[in-house]
Computed example of a mutant assay.
Amino acid sequence: MQEPDITTQSSTVEEWTQALAESTGSPGGGAGTGVMLAVAASLASMVAGYTDAGDGQQGTVDSIQARARSLRQEALRLADEDSAASKAFGAAFRLEPGLERDEAVRDASVQAAKASAVLGDHAIAAFDDLAWLATHGNKALIADVVVAFGALRAAVAGARTNVSFDLASLRSTGASLEQIRDQQPDLWAAVEKLTDAMDRIDRLTAAIDHRAAPTDAT
């Protein structure tokens, strides 16, 4: 898979967002999903670092911070992988109609969906640590936890949408949605799993919003 010219791991924020703003599709929304996940992980690490653990919970805090730091790096790496998959996806659709194009579209669509599903799995795995910080973390940083959940939701929503869209793109090769579901059951199930994760995030953030935004009359 061809590496993207601009990467999250070697570019400044200015350079990367400028590349995102161009009409190239690489980086695109999938890579943006990875960056949002990295933001969520970074905030989780920060809040954990400010949390004074009690009742023998320092080990839990340390583990949360270690996972968050690792996830930040992994999310950026996955964002770059998604950029490469996006480039292959676009190239496949630019081929002349025919069997070669159908095969290229089929492979690129599945690979792009897999890249987004992996990002989604990492985002889902981060939920419990953020939920722990919402309850036990430094209370002065609850607003940062809510912002982290917002970034996490954006990552989950992005992964869900991209997996679904990439799967649906297989219809251009003549496959029906029923055939796609039967041929790619794991990716199909990932869409529902990510939808459920969005609902979990919404419920939790609604429950703690009064602590993060106490002046909100609603």
Rank of each mutant, 00 (worst) to 15 (best):
R181M: 04
A189E: 00
A131G: 01
A143E: 06
G158H: 06
V105H: 07
T205C: 01
A143G: 10
Q179F: 02
Q183D: 15
L130C: 03
A104M: 12
R203E: 14
A151R: 05
I201Q: 02
I180A: 11
G120D: 02
G158W: 03
E192Y: 09
A207P: 05
V147R: 05
D202A: 15
D186K: 03
G120I: 00
V147L: 05
I201G: 02
V118E: 14
Q179K: 13
V118G: 06
I124T: 14
E103T: 13
A117F: 04
A207Q: 13
A131F: 01
D129W: 00
F127N: 04
A159Q: 08
R160S: 14
A197F: 01
K114Y: 08
R171E: 09
N162Y: 00
G158P: 04
N138P: 04
L194W: 01
A157S: 13
K114T: 13
L187K: 02
A123D: 00
E178I: 08
W132N: 01
R200W: 07
I180H: 10
A168Q: 12
A112D: 02
D199E: 15
A151Y: 01
V156N: 07
A104C: 13
N138M: 10
D209C: 07
L170H: 09
S169C: 10
A126T: 03
S176N: 09
A123G: 08
G137F: 06
I208N: 05
V110N: 12
V156M: 08
D107H: 12
T195I: 02
Q179D: 14
S169I: 01
D107E: 15
A155Y: 01
G120C: 01
L119N: 09
V156Y: 07
A131V: 02
A126I: 04
G174C: 10
V163P: 02
T173M: 11
A148D: 02
L177E: 14
A140V: 11
A143Q: 07
S172T: 11
D186P: 03
V118C: 07
A159P: 04
F165E: 12
G174L: 09
L141Q: 13
T205H: 06
D209P: 02
H136N: 14
Q184W: 09
A117C: 02
L177T: 13
A157G: 10
T205P: 06
Q179M: 12
A157N: 10
G137K: 09
L130R: 06
G174Y: 11
S172F: 06
I208F: 03
S169M: 15
A123I: 00
I201V: 08
L204V: 05
W188S: 15
D107C: 11
R153Y: 07
W188F: 14
L130D: 03
G150L: 03
R203H: 13
L133I: 04
F127I: 05
A197K: 05
F149P: 04
K139I: 13
T173V: 10
A115T: 09
F165H: 12
A197T: 05
L177M: 13
A154F: 00
Q111S: 14
R203M: 12
